[in-house]
Design a protein around this nucleic acid. Structure first.
Lengths: 244, 244
DNA sequence: TCGGGATATATGTATAGACATAGAGAAGCA
DNA sequence: TGCTTCTCTATGTCTATACATATATCCCGA
């Protein structure tokens, strides 16, 4: 194969197979040689070829089925991964000074719509808090969070006025499953006041809910500052990303 | 291990290790037994344990280094994967009738900001098109796309008034690398007109650029209908997702 | 005390061999 | 022709073994 020594043998095989697909040598829908044949061609063990092809299948580039063989996916359903880091790191990574302010924290029965969405009985008591995160003193993001004390043991004594809820949860309540969703909303008057912008301003909203085996841990609505962009290659501050 | 027969042995081991981390048995930062020990405990070969632990490391739950061993990540930088399918499938998957309309298609020198972002020489000629996708006759999303004919051979004769650009590209120009980014923008008058909403309405915007080894293939700005939500577990129509 | 080099160790990766299993396709039967 | 059953094949997975490689740690000498 004409491929340079990227890394492991399996990765080189994957890279070469990917090249053949991208350059049209192996077209969408056609069956490619089976693992045994490729093993001979690349002078590798079948398990190595298997590893390479599984990488591409996870990527959505190949469809593999027992007995039917491996074929190039017709509709490559591709996946994009976003890495979610904690707020403070995002801010500091941009070379800015981080601070945050808790606007409210109290125990309260969970609203019906949220209870339904995260699969909790209506009216259960959760900890509700709102906080603003600042970068160099300017509002960066606004979080509106509900925490389930039953799934986050040790929560009782914690005062998030002192500690960052985000980091406390990350460190003390690892999760098994998470769901994210993006949407856009016009800022209401509270959003506008806390983010120091005008009502009606379009805001990127991120909903995130995490679960462990005790149930939902926390669900949060994050509103980013106007112009903020969340991308697979990282986050962009207003003006950094020139969108078409 | 008390784990039910999820799937493979490696996955069961991964599941059990994950459980121990989530339940606090193995706390953040501490070193866990090495592969050989775990192999004994789980009665498996070391390579099977290795596979399991690599799964968790890819997930960001473990930090692994040669000679230093494996430890539970202190700041679990977690990844969220979004699966991006073609528009028509999204619409039809929701049980709605799909249609689309091309608003404009012409060749034009690429604007400087876009050229810079995707790494193309300024002033190169690209194909520019705008289209609206409808679900049951109502505007669902609006795309503003630039296509690089030099990276998409066979593009010349294609008339996207007939064919869906999205699908043509998916089928005919597989890519090696893709970047996605989400943002929110207030609808300008053109957005509003084409999406049949009011100017100023907050819109979820998705930027996507794809490359192959010939260079950037296409870059597109997708504006979703108001209220649309893109999530790890799929897409939600207005009103379906009850965000907090 | 402080480097610098040797050593041991945990992970990274490849291998051949084996058996399991889904499922396409053939064979048999109504 | 339509249905069931059988067979065989390509992938799925695990195993033992081997060697590579990064690097923490120890030891030693200046």
């Amino acid at each position: 194969m004409a491929t340079g020594p990227t890394q492991s043998k399996a990765q080189n095989i994957a890279k070469e197979v990917r090249r053949r697909i991208v350059e049209g040598e192996w077209r969408q829908g056609v069956r490619i040689p089976d693992e045994a044949d490729l093993a001979v061609e690349f002078d590798a063990a079948r398990s190595t070829v298997n590893k390479a092809l599984q990488l591409l299948a996870d990527d959505g580039l190949l469809d593999r089925r027992r007995r039917a063989g491996t074929r190039v996916a017709v509709d490559p359903v591709r996946k994009a991964t976003f890495t979610i880091s904690i707020v403070r790191e995002q801010v500091e990574h941009a070379g800015l000074a981080y601070s945050h302010r808790v606007v409210a924290q109290r125990e309260s029965p969970v609203p019906d719509d949220i209870a339904t969405r995260i699969g909790l009985a209506k009216g259960e008591v959760m900890v509700h808090m709102r906080a603003v995160h600042y970068a160099d003193g300017r509002p960066f993001q606004l979080e509106d969070r509900w925490i389930n004390p039953r799934a986050a043991p040790g929560l009782a004594g914690v005062d998030f006025r002192q500690l960052n809820a985000n980091e406390w949860l990350v460190r003390n309540a690892p999760y098994l499953h998470a769901e994210l969703a993006f949407s856009a909303e016009n800022a209401d008057s509270r959003d506008a006041r806390l983010l120091e912008t005008r009502p009606g301003q379009a805001l990127l909203i991120l909903y995130r809910t995490t679960w462990n085996d005790l149930g939902p841990i926390t669900t949060v609505r994050v509103a980013f500052q106007p112009g903020h962009i969340v991308g697979t290659e990282g986050n962009f501050w207003p003006g950094q990303y020139t969108g078409g």
